[in-house]
Design a protein around this nucleic acid. Structure first.
Lengths: 191, 191
DNA sequence: GGTTGCACTGCAACTCATTGCATAGGTAGC
DNA sequence: GCTACCTATGCAATGAGTTGCAGTGCAACC
């Protein structure tokens, strides 16, 4: 019920083509909302029909034409109205968590390996977020308005990844057949 | 792609009716996978057709009959096979985060109020989890097998809620027009 | 000259999930 | 007797999202 609105936010920040939006959803906004390009195109068409956005075909040099969408006044009004409405509670969905819970009905070692794989994945994502923060928000204490809000969400993503990684470490420590005297978990030194 | 398998795990722990499963999904498993009763009934029917589960009608005293499902050997095999497969990466989806990011295009004060509401909601959920842990896993250091895995997932839920609450607090501190000298996280004394 | 890969748009078919409604018996309060 | 709520199951319609395919055009590599 909210891809429309995620797109509205993204377009409010910068007018873009469907393709650019889809790429953007792999990064910034994508932390807390994802979409494939097919989904984006479909929704954009619906939004244009509803008059929330207006598309203009832009010819490019050495590349296919693109259709750049921008917010209309109706779109801006819709966005403001949506923001004022109560938000749906978070819905966590973790296939891996279900597998951990059911590990005894399968191969616990395989589950552990899978946890490790996900840990690496999220460590990578965390690094990307941190690099992004350093690059985009070097002086975070002075942020205000739009930029502050963007940074806050990025901070949320960073916290989320860190939390996940810590949990994975706990799970691994518990799942691995630990010998006696083994430390529960080495230190997690991350600035 | 995995409600089937979440149900398999749940049934492996305890044979249940659709209704009981749906209720269970509000609690334990529901931390990382949710489903409405309609969804559960539909999927159960499909699973029975596939031979993964077998249902038996049980007459009850003073209550409607219920149909209790249990795993078949095929279901157990399917579950083990699924657990061995790589899990899809987590997909975070937070409407509230999108609203925070777009706060400047609407009413930031309304967004702050919404964040506060969600904070209370998650604080409540955290309390429920902690109570559940105390009650169900009083001696967590000795857990093994099934029980250990259940506990690990519960710990994940607890960590997730805590992390979320902390983030909400940060967001509130930043969103509220804080006067100089105000402590980062004051208690709520704002209309 | 052929392949690979990226930028760009989109349709079609499908699955997954939600919302709303229907039914039916039991318990409990007023 | 009426109302309201709980257990219990399910259908129908709709919406949200994924997967697979299809096509154009340009650039670079070998």
């Amino acid at each position: 019920m909210a891809l429309e609105h995620a797109i509205l936010v993204s377009l409010a920040e910068k007018a873009s083509s469907g393709y650019e939006l889809a790429r953007r959803f792999d990064k910034s906004i994508g932390q807390f909302w994802t979409a494939t390009h097919q989904q984006v195109y479909k929704v954009l068409a619906r939004m244009e029909a509803a008059g929330w956005v207006a598309g203009t075909v832009v010819e490019q040099d050495g590349r296919p034409d693109k259709k750049v969408y921008d917010l209309t006044d109706a779109g801006r009004a819709e966005l403001a109205a949506w923001i004022a409405q109560p938000a749906a509670p978070e819905v966590a969905r973790s296939e891996l968590a279900v597998k951990i819970r059911g590990a005894s009905y399968g191969d616990p070692a395989a589950v552990a390996a899978e946890v490790e794989r996900h840990r690496a994945l999220h460590a990578e994502r965390l690094d990307a977020y941190l690099a992004n923060e350093k690059h985009e928000f070097p002086d975070s204490s002075r942020l205000r308005g739009k930029r502050l809000h963007q940074w806050l969400v990025l901070r949320g993503g960073i916290a989320l990844e860190r939390n996940l990684i810590d949990w994975y470490d706990d799970v691994l420590a518990a799942l691995r057949p630990s010998k006696k005297g083994t430390k529960p978990r080495p230190d997690k030194a991350k600035p």
